[in-house]
Amino acid sequence: MSQPSADVSVRVAWADDAPGIAGVQVRAWREAYADVLPAEALAGLDVEHVAAAWRDALAKPQDARNRVLVALERNRVVGFAVTGPAGDPDCDPVSDGEVGEFRVDPGEQRKGHGSRLVQACADTLAADRFSRAVAWLSSTDDALREFLTGAGWAPDGAHRELDLHGDGTVQVKQVRLHTALA
């Protein structure tokens, strides 16, 4: 007798998803930036404050092609991604879409949520008539790089330093990956 499959899905986020998205983001950032940001900065991330920002962003998207997707297990948010037009100067905002943020809750990884989420990103960007997708990731995030390259993404040679504090004190080196959406 086989086990019933879990109730898992990906859909466009609703304002009610803001607390779940914020919780995933805070937990994921605490893990991803543990070696980059001071411990007190990570401990100071407030889920309620982050949720309020998500609620506002979900209520008033900046562009009709900006989307927030949530990966769900039953009705619980276990991951999220943000898609929209690519903003890099060497990208064409008409044909190049971007996955601006891609997070799966650290306790929910390796359960297929990331695969469903990255496929939903590609499908969403293609439906929004983008022909190429790009994503920036930390140059030291080997797990995400391996995951995305396994899904058909590849480095395109672009790199940058992201200023996390806005004052030059914390720089994160990033590389850009891309994939065709045909």
Results as ranks from 00 to 15, higher is better:
D167T: 00
L117G: 04
A15Y: 02
A64M: 10
T83K: 00
V8A: 12
V36T: 10
A15D: 01
V50D: 12
R145N: 08
D88E: 15
A127F: 08
A182D: 10
E40S: 15
V47G: 04
V68T: 03
L72C: 08
L137H: 08
L69M: 04
A120I: 11
L58K: 05
V10P: 00
P155N: 01
L37C: 04
H113Q: 01
S9K: 12
A32F: 02
A64C: 02
A6Q: 06
K111N: 04
R176T: 07
V170Q: 12
W54C: 07
N75Q: 15
W14F: 14
A13S: 04
A64N: 04
G84I: 09
D141H: 13
Q25C: 06
P106N: 01
L148N: 06
R145E: 07
A71M: 06
D46I: 09
A41V: 06
R76I: 14
D46Y: 01
L72P: 05
R116C: 04
R74S: 14
P93Y: 02
H178R: 11
R110P: 01
T149K: 08
V170C: 12
F130K: 14
D128K: 06
S95G: 10
G87M: 13
W136A: 04
D156Q: 03
D16T: 03
A15N: 02
W136H: 03
A53P: 00
A143M: 06
Y33D: 11
G166L: 11
M1Q: 09
Q171L: 15
V12T: 06
C121M: 03
V70R: 15
P38Q: 08
V77H: 03
G20I: 07
V77L: 11
Q119V: 08
R65T: 02
D163Y: 05
A51K: 03
V77D: 05
A15R: 04
P93M: 02
F102P: 00
P61C: 04
V12S: 12
A32Q: 12
S131C: 06
M1L: 10
A180L: 15
F102A: 12
P89F: 04
A34R: 14
V134H: 11
L117P: 04
A18T: 02
G100W: 04
E48L: 07
E161V: 09
A34F: 08
V68M: 07
L42M: 06
L148I: 10
R30I: 11
S138G: 03
R160F: 05
A86T: 00
A127I: 13
V172Q: 01
A43S: 09
A18V: 03
A57N: 10
F80Q: 13
K173Y: 03
G114K: 09
P155V: 06
V47F: 00
A135W: 09
C91A: 12
V118C: 01
W14R: 15
E98S: 05
R30S: 13
R30V: 12
R74V: 10
H159M: 14
E146S: 14
A13P: 01
G84D: 05
E98A: 09
A53D: 14
W54N: 01
H159S: 14
D90E: 10
E73N: 13
M1T: 08
A180P: 00
L148F: 07
V26L: 10
S95V: 10
P106S: 09
D63M: 13
W29E: 10
G44K: 09
D88H: 12
A18E: 09
A182Y: 10
L37W: 01
A43I: 08
F80L: 13
A15V: 11
D96E: 01
A154S: 12
